[in-house]
Write a protein that binds this DNA or RNA. Structure first.
Lengths: 236, 236
DNA sequence: GATGATTTGTACGTATGTATA
DNA sequence: ATATACATACGTACAAATCAT
């Protein structure tokens, strides 16, 4: 009884709540800057404030939430310069994953990644954004795991998590999905030639050009391009 | 009133306790595997169990502590393969810092790093380990900051923190301090020529050879080299 | 700038789950 | 296998700090 999947997901309320709030933040249901009122959350989850507080302490350490003593917690609102920093680290971590994965991948993994990628072609064609987002995550996750460095995979996933509230506009640009797909193709090709340098380079391109494509969106949708830099969303 | 240094260090008991326990772990006063008994800690810190529990939740997220529901928390005991993974990520993060720093450093920073490095020569000569450890940390910290990527600096520091319980034997090998100093010299030289590629490469060497030098220690001090791989400490 | 309302921080008691005999 | 002991998870009450007024 209470037999759960694999790692025996923690059965404490604090942990469940932490997961739920984290999920809300990651999926944009709690926007950056939003405050997390303990009493309201306690009512919402039908528990006392104690597990809520513990959940908030956990979220604090993940970087999704910032809490100042006696002043409550808010969903982290990351300033643009810091977003740039985070995306830069993300790009390097993913490039590292790609480099290691290119060397370490088994034949099965290579085939699996190719299958994953080929399958996503249909999603591009049908312009199914949500499904492509999921496929994209799966694609990148597979590469993290193929790096054969569990800590690297975790670290990269963690950074991706922290960035996700700011990548809402992921594939909203015209042709952005198709571009992403083409870049993935080049990455898969690099893996298939076991070319670590190419895999790393293509991954870097994939995550570097993201920024620009998003800037394009910003420019297109808001022509008031007066401010030196605007907060923007982005994506791998 | 209650005006504190800079970032207004949090004045809550939970946070103070979290800092204290974290410090204990990092400095080896609480060994990996040690359990963190809430009641005992509450007595030790002369508080109720509530702030203790919140501190543990925070420590959990930093990766220094692992807590299983209803079964208490223990200081993370990291298996050797995972340590390898963590050191590999550490090396790459520091290499990235070095690469960025080489390009971004101001003249003042370059001079500052040189001064820091030159000053540590005396510590090597006098074989003052504790002082050299501190100087070494300052040296690396300066490079993180010079990368001009605050998130990268934080991330790298965080990984260093998580590794620190396992780097106790940092400079205990014969001549290890001198080796480290020489490697630092090559790094500083690369910065002075603003050679990003060299800085990155030298940093990688610096953190790569660490592993081997520690393996040497292990071999030297424990000749029973029967197990395929032994848990070991290491260092940048 | 002081005061009251509101929210967070801490203490303590109880319940529930885990480990040991 | 059952029961007992024990540590943790949660709920409630109170204290302290922040912010509105």
């Amino acid at each position: 009884m209470n037999r759960d999947t694999g790692a025996m997901t923690k059965i404490t309320k604090a942990f469940e709540i932490q997961k739920a709030i984290s999920d809300d933040i990651v999926h944009g249901r709690r926007a950056p800057g939003t405050s997390l009122d303990e009493t309201m959350l306690a009512r919402a989850f039908a528990v006392s404030r104690t597990p809520i507080r513990e959940a908030i302490r956990q979220l604090e350490m993940t970087g999704l939430v910032e809490a100042r003593p006696h002043r409550g917690a808010v969903v982290c609102d990351v300033p643009p310069e810091r977003l740039d920093d985070m995306f830069a680290v993300m790009r390097e971590l993913e490039a590292l994953c790609a480099r290691l994965a290119a060397s370490a991948m088994t034949t099965e993994e290579r085939a699996g990644l190719r299958a994953l990628h080929d399958a996503s072609a249909a999603l591009v064609k049908s312009q199914n954004r949500d499904a492509y987002v999921a496929a994209n995550d799966a694609f990148h996750d597979a590469i993290y795991d193929a790096s054969r460095n569990g800590f690297l995979a975790e670290t990269t996933r963690q950074v991706r998590l922290r960035l996700s509230p700011f990548r809402r506009a992921q594939f909203e640009g015209r042709g952005r999905m198709a571009n992403s797909f083409d870049e993935h193709e080049r990455i898969v090709a690099a893996f298939e030639s076991a070319d670590a340098a190419a895999a790393e380079a293509e991954m870097r391109v994939h995550l570097g050009e993201v920024r620009e494509s998003v800037d394009e969106i910003d420019r297109g949708e808001a022509a008031e391009n007066l401010k030196p830099r605007r907060p923007r969303a982005a994506k791998p």
